[in-house]
Computed example of a mutant assay.
Amino acid sequence: MRIAVIDGQGGGIGRAIIEKLRKELPEETEILALGTNALATSSMIKAGANEGATGENVIFVNADKVDIIMGTVGIIAANSMLGEVTANIAKVIAESPARKILLPLNRCNIEIVGVDKNMPLPHLIDHAINNIKTLCRGEKNV
């Protein structure tokens, strides 16, 4: 299983995701840290990613080479993360054949109806990791 975690700004959310993935998934799970900037990438690598790289082209090249893409809903919204997610990045991620498991944070002026707005980030990450564990077991419905 290959999982790409995409984050920007300081990489704190990506770091939290990768730390949890490392604790919960088998050691052979390959985790790629794809940052929109070097600080985010560095933070995610320190959290335990197998490999990491930075920039728009990195996301273009890897989006169709992974089984799962994780991040916040902002990674499929053009100009989110203070403009770090370009329209091209959002398009490539959205069109990737990889399964997208996105955290529904409402920071990019997108509100996802039906989601508990008060659920703290660690609980959102736990829920996302449980979905990935289900996928790793070969179950399709998460």
Results as ranks from 00 to 15, higher is better:
residue 1 M to F: 10
residue 2 R to G: 02
residue 3 I to M: 04
residue 7 D to E: 11
residue 9 Q to L: 15
residue 9 Q to R: 13
residue 12 G to E: 11
residue 14 G to A: 10
residue 15 R to P: 01
residue 18 I to M: 07
residue 19 E to C: 10
residue 29 T to H: 03
residue 31 I to S: 03
residue 35 G to T: 06
residue 39 L to T: 07
residue 41 T to G: 04
residue 45 I to V: 15
residue 52 G to L: 06
residue 53 A to I: 00
residue 53 A to H: 10
residue 54 T to S: 13
residue 57 N to A: 09
residue 58 V to D: 04
residue 61 V to D: 12
residue 62 N to G: 00
residue 63 A to W: 01
residue 64 D to Q: 11
residue 64 D to F: 06
residue 69 I to A: 02
residue 70 M to W: 02
residue 71 G to Q: 03
residue 71 G to K: 02
residue 73 V to C: 04
residue 76 I to G: 01
residue 78 A to I: 11
residue 79 N to R: 15
residue 81 M to D: 11
residue 82 L to W: 12
residue 83 G to I: 08
residue 86 T to N: 05
residue 89 I to Q: 03
residue 93 I to A: 01
residue 96 S to T: 01
residue 96 S to W: 01
residue 97 P to E: 03
residue 97 P to D: 04
residue 99 R to E: 00
residue 100 K to A: 01
residue 101 I to M: 04
residue 102 L to I: 01
residue 103 L to Q: 05
residue 105 L to K: 08
residue 115 V to Q: 14
residue 116 D to T: 07
residue 117 K to F: 11
residue 118 N to Q: 15
residue 118 N to Y: 14
residue 119 M to P: 10
residue 120 P to K: 12
residue 122 P to V: 11
residue 126 D to W: 03
residue 127 H to T: 14
residue 131 N to P: 05
residue 132 I to R: 00
residue 134 T to P: 11
residue 137 R to I: 00
residue 139 E to L: 15
